[in-house]
């Protein structure tokens, strides 16, 4: 018998976005403040797990139709690619740089190539956490 979880489901539906938005914030401020790819990825998967607690795997696969193992591969490729990109400029592997750009809304913004590496870390953390939860949760 399945009891109705309407309170938990309403909370999960509305607050998953708050958790994921805050995880993006933590991810993007990682250069100058505490945060970064690892903690951002963990918080994003925490938001997805909140959805998973209130609903089940079928709903999650409809909402987020991603195979999380592929996410790990994409993340590793992004991280390696950000290291390999330094070969184009004739500098050692994983040399990173930054510069200041005028973006339309944000104004003068510091953009660093380390963010690309951090994106890789983020994707790997989300992918691995969700794969672990999935393989534990679905083994009957």
């Amino acid at each position: 018998m399945r009891t109705n979880d309407i309170i938990l489901q309403t909370l999960a539906k509305s607050f998953m976005f708050v958790v994921i938005a805050f995880s993006f914030y933590v991810f993007l401020t990682g250069h100058h403040h505490p945060g970064g790819g690892f903690i951002g990825g963990l918080m994003t998967s925490a938001g997805i797990i909140l959805l998973l607690l209130a609903f089940d795997w079928k709903v999650l696969k409809t909402v987020i139709p991603i195979d999380f193992k592929i996410l790990v591969a994409i993340g590793l490729l992004t991280a390696v690619g950000s290291g390999m990109g330094s070969f184009l400029f004739g500098v050692p592997f994983l040399t990173h740089t930054f510069g200041y750009f005028d973006l339309p809304i944000l104004g003068k913004t510091e953009l660093a190539t380390a963010t690309i590496f951090d994106t890789g870390v983020y994707l790997v953390v989300v992918g691995i956490t969700m794969t672990i939860i999935q393989s534990i949760g679905e083994s009957e």
Binding site: I7, L8, L11, F15, V18, F22
Partner: peptide
């Protein structure tokens, strides 16, 4: 802003946790 978010978050999630 993180503190404002924290206040709202605690205000909404703790009663739901107690209910569950």
């Amino acid at each position: 802003a993180r503190l404002v978010l924290g206040i709202i978050f605690v205000f909404i999630t703790t009663p739901v946790a107690g209910h569950i």
